[in-house]
Simulated assay, not measured.
Amino acid sequence: MTGTPTAGPAGSRAPFGARLAAAMAEHGPLCAGIDPHPGLLDTWGLSDDADGLRTFALTVVDALGGRVAALKPQSALFERHGSKGVAVLEEVIAAAREAGTLTIVDAKRGDIGSTMAGYAQAYLADGSPLAGDALTVSPFLGPGSLTPAVELALATGRGLFVLCLTSNPEGHEVQHARSAGGESVAAQVARFAAELNAAELGAVELGAVDLEAPGSEASESAADWGSGGFGSIGLVVGATIGDAARTAGVDLAAVRGPLLAPGVGAQGAGAEELAAVFGDARSQVLASSSRGVLAAGPDVAALRTAAKTAADEARGALATR
């Protein structure tokens, strides 16, 4: 990825937050999903099996690699094809890496103890074929249950997107529930991310994390984000949740990390809705679009046009006014 810093905590890559900020600055605030739903496979004229899955997913990488801020393969839609499907997911992650594009593996893993440590090793450890640049995780067994994933992500220059405020109707019942002290579950999750990002960014500012080691090309935008407030622990926040962040007492800007947001632009949320949801945190938003882009396939040129349109729409809708 042109202009993206590569040095990091282990000497191999810069922190995920800095790398994502550089990618967003270069390509726009769009994360393109790779969601091989049976209906989309059929629309593309592909069989609903591992062969069709592979053609679909690698076509998306070929079309959009190096052209969007990030790609987000939906793990479940690969897993449904068994071991062959998981092997395709490994190919997709490797192909995106070769194209210089960040991958967010959308697996929403969450557990405790050794099981969470196992998930962390699978999706975040150097050398694992399933390890992209970031992983979506669920904190609803308690944010502290994510500690193995947090530690490994930060040690390897990777990131996490923690479910916080989702748009599904049932999510409200859990995410807005409050502790005896009056803090909502969503606010606890956001505070957890904010504290981790504050510690990481403090290390950057003190020089403990090197954004520009010899041989790397750290862009000015990435360095600015790294020192100015873009950590590697992000949140998943639906773009169509209205004033849910406010009513749950969540300060999204204070998280100082990326906000992965389904539902931006053609998917339903425009400038007015985004101002209500994200407020002063709009510059942190990474808009996620899957079917809106993928429906343009299988033609590569059409996929590229759809992605550029989605990125331009997201940029315009998220512009602060």
Rank of each mutant, 00 (worst) to 15 (best):
D312H: 03
L64G: 02
S83K: 12
D106W: 12
A317L: 09
R321V: 09
V60N: 08
A317D: 15
L53N: 02
Q121K: 13
T156S: 15
I241N: 07
T320Y: 00
L89G: 09
A248G: 03
A125L: 09
T156M: 13
H37G: 00
D51Q: 15
S167I: 05
R256E: 15
I241M: 02
I233Y: 13
G171E: 00
A248L: 10
S216M: 01
D42P: 00
G257Q: 11
N197R: 06
R54T: 05
I93N: 12
A261G: 04
G127M: 13
L252D: 03
T103G: 03
G263H: 13
G132I: 15
G268D: 10
S83G: 00
G263F: 05
L206D: 14
G249I: 05
L20G: 13
R80S: 07
G39I: 03
V60Q: 15
A107L: 10
L303G: 07
D126K: 04
E217L: 01
N168G: 09
G228H: 10
G265V: 06
E212D: 15
S114C: 00
A194T: 09
G316T: 14
A271C: 04
Q188K: 09
S128C: 13
G171H: 01
S138C: 03
A244R: 14
A198R: 15
E200S: 12
G226Y: 04
A193H: 02
R67C: 06
L58N: 11
G52A: 11
A21C: 05
A269N: 06
A222P: 02
A134C: 12
G238F: 09
A319V: 07
T320Q: 07
G144T: 09
L294A: 07
V237K: 01
R19V: 00
S232T: 10
S288E: 04
L130Q: 04
V285R: 06
D126E: 13
A218E: 06
A194M: 05
S216I: 02
R291D: 02
G231E: 11
D49H: 14
Q267D: 11
V264E: 04
A306Q: 08
S145Y: 06
G159N: 11
L260G: 01
L124R: 03
P258I: 03
I241S: 06
A18G: 01
F192G: 01
D280Y: 00
E217H: 11
A70G: 12
P148I: 02
G268E: 12
L206P: 03
T147M: 13
L163K: 01
A125F: 08
T156L: 10
M1N: 11
I241E: 05
E90I: 10
V277D: 14
S167K: 05
A275W: 09
G229K: 13
S12G: 13
G110W: 02
G82A: 02
L154I: 02
P9K: 10
D62T: 15
Q121S: 15
F140V: 10
M116G: 03
G28F: 08
